[in-house]
């Protein structure tokens, strides 16, 4: 697949995993332009909806302590598997822990994993992509390594990396990040290579401008938009991979509630106590949906070229 995109001019960029979406036109019909932030949001309703939902989740995660929660790790084997009620809004799990509190606190882990992976993989991917785009002799080696890593399905790679270490939030973040880096690197390298051929960049190089200055002035500003869009999709993808890791037992330990491992715990009982799986599933899906919508909207707003090409 090394040259799939090279060989076919109309081919879209490779999708990032799971939540990875190629650019998608807006769901909402285009409407009249208005000015200001409100006008912007009106023009890009997916950003408004996605952003609002995501902000809500961030709010939930930050203020989890004040949202009528109890200690999410407090065991009470004497009142286990209670149905949802006025006292236990989402019921209790097999060890009598309050599912509502776990889901609310779980937002923290899922969002931290999503944001951290998006940030880290973007940063590292940017660095690798820049090196690859500017250092000719390194390019061949780096891209072969990236091709190799990309040919291992990301979920598989993340699972395999988790097998090396023990379950913790940090290790989950590192594993998913490593699996996502090749995609960002390729993206940045592509942007760098196309920018290098722009007349003004060539002129700057000819004039003897030092590479760091070129990068700072001409390259970085132009990579921000595609990387931001890509980072959003990676964030969504990372949250799903986190859930999958927890689901098959290779993720965060159960004493740290995450949506993935709340579902993993409730998995065995989904026929008789479906609410243990249902609530975290809804929260996870809504959050990932919000991030994906945001990504679609950002792509339309920030990267008209990319949106237009498809």
């Amino acid at each position: 697949m090394a040259s799939a995109t090279v060989a076919s001019p109309a081919a879209p960029p490779p999708p990032h995993e799971v939540a990875a979406a190629p650019p998608m036109p807006d769901i909402m019909p285009p409407v009249k332009a208005r000015r200001g932030v409100l006008g912007f949001l009106w023009r890009y309703p997916t950003i408004a909806i996605g952003g609002a939902l995501l902000l809500l989740m961030v709010f939930v995660a930050v203020f989890a302590d004040f949202l009528w929660t109890v200690d999410p790790t407090a065991l009470a084997p004497a009142r286990r598997t209670r149905e949802p009620s006025a006292q236990y809004w989402f019921g209790t799990d097999m060890l009598g822990r309050d599912v509502y509190s776990r889901v609310i606190y779980g937002a923290r882990v899922s969002l931290i994993v999503g944001f951290a992976v998006a940030l880290l993989s973007s940063a590292v991917g940017l660095l690798i992509g820049l090196v690859s785009g500017f250092v000719r002799w390194a390019d061949g080696i780096i891209m072969r390594v990236m091709d190799g890593m990309m040919s291992i399905p990301p979920i598989l790679l993340a699972i395999a990396l988790m097998a090396l270490t023990r379950g913790s939030v940090r290790n989950v973040i590192i594993s998913i990040t490593i699996a996502e880096i090749p995609r960002v690197s390729r993206l940045v390298r592509g942007v760098v290579l196309s920018l290098r051929e722009q007349p003004y960049v060539e002129a700057a190089i000819a004039a003897g401008t030092r590479t760091p200055v070129i990068i700072w002035r001409h390259i970085l500003p132009n990579t921000i938009a595609p990387i931001t869009v890509q980072a959003t999709y990676i964030c969504a993808s990372a949250m799903i991979i986190e859930a999958i890791l927890s689901f098959i037992g290779a993720g965060t330990p159960p004493i740290i509630p995450s949506w993935g491992n709340i579902m993993a715990e409730g998995r065995a009982l989904w026929q008789v106590k479906p609410y243990i799986v249902f609530f975290p599933a809804v929260f996870l899906s809504v959050t990932v949906l919000a991030v994906n919508l945001l990504g679609d909207g950002l792509r339309d707003a920030l990267d008209p070229r990319m949106a237009k090409r498809i």
């Binding site: 799971v18 979406a21 998608m24 769901i27 599933a281």
Partner: peptide, 15 residues
């Protein structure tokens, strides 16, 4: 169709 497409990316396969 497009709403389904975004949804398809957002719900984990095991769910």
């Amino acid at each position: 169709v497009m709403a389904f497409a975004v949804l398809g990316f957002s719900v984990p396969v095991f769910v």
